[in-house]
Design a protein around this nucleic acid. Sequence first.
DNA 1: GCATTAACCACAG
DNA 2: CTGTGGTTAATGC
Length: 226
Amino acid sequence: MENKNCSLCLFKSKAAKNLSDPELKQMGNSCAEVVFRKGDTIFKENALSSNIIYLQKGLVKLLIEGPHQTQILRLKKAPCYLGLPTTMGDKVNHYSAVAIEPTTACFIDINTFKNLLKINPDFSFEIITELCRNELEQFHRCVKLIQNQIYGRLANHLLNLSTEVYESTEFKLPLTRNEIADLVCTSRETVSRLLSDLSKEKIIQVDGKQVRILNQALLEKISDKG
DNA sequence: GCATTAACCACAG
DNA sequence: CTGTGGTTAATGC
């Protein structure tokens, strides 16, 4: 494994910007950069985990086995850390991560990471902030899934892709209809139907996986009231 | 009752 | 992998 020089990294996380040169060197010595193709598994549920993963580039889905089927927990876009809860919280992963676009990730040894948390409070502060933001997002998503109807949940996902992930009103769906269903908790058929309904209503334009949002205001309304 | 919502099944591109 | 149609169960006026 070749040692990385994290000081020179162009994709340094907000947290890592607080690390001193020696600390970055320490991280680089126990860190491996790995490139994943679309569909590659980054880490797997129930496998032993001894690394914190920092996503430099790319897009990832998090999956967990539910009682009936696989549940897509959420999408995560770089730059971000992956597997903090699952690596710090237990010895084995409680969920899997799969790249859904070409992705570059750094695997940081957990002991090195823990040590950096202990010796650099500014670094720790940023990590905690990221974790807290995540938890808030989870809470909102949870309530939305439970209380909104499917129209609202799907509209919410489309808006999320548009505003958070791609930052454009036009984008290519990174998931199949089936996966969208697993993410917003419905059936594949319903996703198909609702997408064509939204298209008939001129709220979005759909061509295969290509989507353009035509009426964002209305989509937001649907996402709220759902 | 009657309407709506959404899942499940089947079948065709 | 998708889109559609039929059927059906649950829920709400």
